[in-house]
Simulated assay, not measured.
Amino acid sequence: MISIRNARQHEVSALADIGMLAWEQAVLGVADLDALRENARNAFAAFLSRHWSTVIAAELDGVLAGWAAREAMDEEITDLWVAPQAQRQGIGSALLSAVEAEMVEASHEAAGLQTHARNALALSFFRKHGYSVSWLSVAYSPKLDRDVESIGLRRNLVEDEPLGYGSNGF
């Protein structure tokens, strides 16, 4: 059974481990994992140490299996990570639903995120959940010593009201 809740401070290391495993899967073939692993691990640990209180955690049968975050608590989803062994079991969908509900409650009308353009699993997941491409960018990454394609995705969270008068827009 999947349960969604707020993260707890003592889970920072376990959440960072989940982030690392999912990140390694996401950048496989795009980046030199050995060269970037320590920087990525430090980035996950630093982010989670500072922001654990705003992170949403997912458990599968009582075991941590994923997490999501909005670093600035705005309309941008900055993190959504599911442990590879727990993927395709509804955890990502449950996390996304919880993050979107937070955004609607905070009066955000749309949600956005970005990933690298070759992250086929993430692109498929977010498209399945109603996200569409809003931008594509290519920029040089000094860490990777090459150009990296990034893609921005967006989804309206609030349906547009019909224009005009009355319930049918007349």
Rank of each mutant, 00 (worst) to 15 (best):
L113A: 10
A117S: 13
L123Y: 08
A101Y: 08
V104E: 04
L123T: 04
V99S: 12
E102K: 12
S97D: 06
A98T: 04
S124Y: 05
N119D: 13
A98I: 10
E100C: 04
A111M: 12
F125I: 07
H129G: 02
L121H: 03
A110V: 14
N119G: 10
A101M: 14
T115W: 00
E109D: 12
F125L: 05
E102L: 14
A110Y: 07
N119K: 09
A120T: 14
N119E: 11
F126T: 04
F126V: 04
E109T: 12
H129D: 00
A111F: 11
T115R: 00
L123K: 09
M103L: 12
E109V: 11
L123N: 04
Q114N: 15
L123F: 08
E105M: 11
E102M: 11
A110P: 02
S97P: 00
L96W: 09
A110F: 13
E102S: 13
A117D: 07
S107M: 01
E102W: 09
K128W: 01
T115P: 03
S107K: 06
F126Y: 15
G112L: 14
R118M: 06
A111D: 12
S97L: 08
M103I: 07
H108L: 03
Q114M: 10
K128T: 03
V104Q: 10
A110M: 12
L121F: 00
S124R: 12
A110H: 10
S97I: 04
H116C: 03
G112Y: 14
E100V: 02
A111H: 12
E109Q: 14
S124C: 07
H116D: 05
A106C: 07
R118C: 05
F126P: 02
A98V: 09
A117Y: 02
R118D: 13
A122F: 01
M103Y: 05
M103H: 07
L113Q: 09
M103P: 06
V104N: 04
V104H: 01
H108F: 15
L121Q: 08
F126R: 02
L121R: 05
A120Y: 05
A122V: 03
F125Y: 03
V104C: 02
L113W: 08
E102G: 14
R118Q: 13
F126L: 03
H108M: 07
S97C: 02
A122M: 01
H116V: 07
V99I: 15
A101Q: 15
L96K: 06
E100H: 04
H116T: 09
V99D: 06
E102H: 11
